[in-house]
Design a protein around this nucleic acid. Structure first.
Length: 502
RNA sequence: GAGGGUAUAGCUCAGCCGGUAGAGCAGCGGCCUUUUAAGCCGUUGGCCGAAGGUUCGAAUCCUUCUACCCUCACCA
């Protein structure tokens, strides 16, 4: 980079020359503060009341149109944009000279009176325009035009790689991107408020864990020097949160990052945000109500209604959502009832469905595969899939009516799952057996099988009340609400290969 | 991990069956005291992602590499 710095592009050299000129004329290009009285949007919205009143706004110059001894510009702040009108005979010779040395992208503060131009645009007639930060890099400026009431952007900053790597530029230049992240923040705020209003306690549990658990995934491994031990970045919060239920809390939740050392695509980032909640004395039926209530609550808070548009389809989040068992759903979509079928029969059915089956797959795995291939893509409207085979769910309690099943559900919509929940297994003896079954899988070479956690078993032996638990993939919920097709578009800084290798 | 695509000026993109680089915007110099994708005149700017190869000659054809995007496989 330093080589490039020496040989700056012409456009950047010019900016540095302007910086020097400004300093020579006594202008501080990096002053310490500015007293703002209004945001741009407030002025535009309240133009009548503010007419001929003095205001002070601060933000970035996004367009400059010169007219000799006069100039128009747009300044953008966090709320929007407003036009400036700078006259040499108003701001004075020296200040006008400073203005002439400003570039698109520079951060400025303007004081002046509000008025309306001939064309009817609310504008600030500058009494003074101050440089607040000189910028040395040109912004990839997007030009906009209003055509038939539609905002049309020209030369949009669109290169995805650059947008992700230089999100700060993306945010300045693409207003829709900012909106997505504001909505993301609101979703989490409303989620938190909803859970708090239920009387649940927000808690924090370890990210660095000596034994990882609570999900099936490969972990990131790290090393703690002082203790000289291997630690894992958590793949889930589950086992720690349930320890807190053992400890006597009636309901706890955590919204935080989990880490899974696996592939990346438009639904997966190595670090992602999970919300997990556990409520004592409740079961999975209660958790279903909690999910549909929470998601529709968020929709109402954000859009004032419980339907949303996602990738051109209207999704109706109004409770109650459809509920169907895993086996019924498979039968509905394939015509095959897989319940109680043995391994050979399942293989035969998979064959008839033209699916490839790996030799080491067991019953549960085949059922899961049939479901995700034949059913999952068709679950567009919100649907709870319930009652999974025991072997797929080592932490879930057996079904009250059928010991081959567990009380588990996953909420699906737009062809993907957004969470996972169960009546939590609190029988320590059964839990030990399930862990041992996982150990066998581990030995068979399943590197995602779960580790046996003796301390967690000890906690269960002290007694965990009946508990309902739920995890929600927050990023996916955000994708749904903000109509984004890729997880990278709802993460400020999605994981990328480091820049400039080789 | 497999397949497909993309990479040319600060940004958005042209550049055909190989002949030595182009536009708009931005920038720079002019003119311009109500413009708004401001306008008009002039003008600078490129190791054509990297490295090799074929060729008299490569942005263009071939090979390898790098990064990103899309699809598929595993996982939320």
């Amino acid at each position: 980079m330093s080589e490039q710095e020496k040989d700056l592009s012409e456009i950047m050299q010019v900016r540095r020359q302007k910086l020097e000129k400004l300093q020579e004329s006594g202008v501080n290009p990096y002053p310490h503060s500015f007293e703002r009285t209004h945001f741009s949007q407030e002025i535009v919205d309240n133009a009548k009341q503010l007419m001929e009143k003095e205001v002070a706004v601060a933000g970035r110059l996004m367009s400059i149109r010169g007219h000799g001894k006069v100039g128009f510009a747009h300044i953008m702040d966090s709320q929007g944009r407003i036009q400036l009108y700078v006259r040499k005979d108003q701001v004075g010779e020296a200040n006008f000279a400073t203005y002439k040395l400003m570039d698109i992208g520079d951060i400025v503060g303007v004081t002046g009176e509000v008025f309306e131009t001939r064309t009817g645009e609310t504008t600030i007639k500058a009494a003074k325009i101050e440089l607040l930060t000189k910028t040395l890099r040109p912004l990839p400026i997007v030009k906009e035009k209003i055509e038939d009431g539609e905002r049309v952007a020209y030369d949009q900053f669109a290169d995805k790689e650059m947008r992700y790597r230089q999100r700060y530029v993306d945010l300045v230049v693409n207003p829709d991107v900012r909106e997505v992240f504001i909505t993301r923040s609101k979703i989490i705020t409303h989620m938190r408020r909803f859970l708090d209003d239920k009387g649940l306690l927000e808690v924090e549990t370890p990210v660095l864990q000596p034994i990882y658990g609570g999900a099936s995934a490969r972990p990131f491994v790290t090393h703690h020097n002082a203790l000289d031990v291997e630690l894992y970045l958590r793949i889930a919060d589950e086992l720690y949160l349930k320890r807190l239920i053992v400890g006597g809390f009636d309901g706890v939740y955590e919204i935080s990052k989990d880490f899974r050392n696996e592939g990346m695509d438009r639904f997966h980032n190595p670090e992602f945000t999970m919300m997990e909640v556990y409520v004592a004395y409740k079961d999975y039926k209660y958790m279903m109500e909690l999910v549909e209530e929470m998601v529709s609550y968020i929709a109402n808070k954000i859009y004032g209604k419980t339907t949303i548009l996602h990738q051109g389809r209207e999704i109706d989040l109004t409770p109650p959502w459809k509920r169907i068992t895993l086996f019924d759903a498979i039968e509905e979509h394939t015509g095959h009832n897989l319940y109680g079928k043995d391994l050979e029969q399942l293989r035969q059915i998979a064959k008839e469905l033209k699916m490839e089956v790996e030799s080491f797959w067991r019953e549960g795995k085949i059922i899961d595969e049939v479901f995700s291939e034949k059913v999952e893509p068709k679950l567009i409207q919100p649907t709870f899939i319930t009652d999974y085979p025991v072997e797929l769910s080592p932490l879930a309690k057996r079904h009250r009516n059928d010991p081959n099943l567990v009380e588990r559900f996953e909420p699906f919509m737009v062809g993907g799952e957004i969470g996972n929940a169960f009546s939590e297994l609190n029988d320590p003896i059964d839990q030990r057996e399930r862990f041992l079954a996982q150990q066998e899988l581990l030995e068979l070479g399943d590197d995602e099988a779960q580790m046996l956690d003796e301390d967690y078993l000890r906690a269960l032996e002290y007694g965990m009340p009946p508990t309902g638990g739920l995890g929600i993939g927050v990023d996916r919920l955000v994708m749904l609400f903000t109509d984004q097709a890729s997880i990278r578009d709802v993460l400020f800084f999605p994981q990328m290969r480091p820049e400039k290798s080789g």
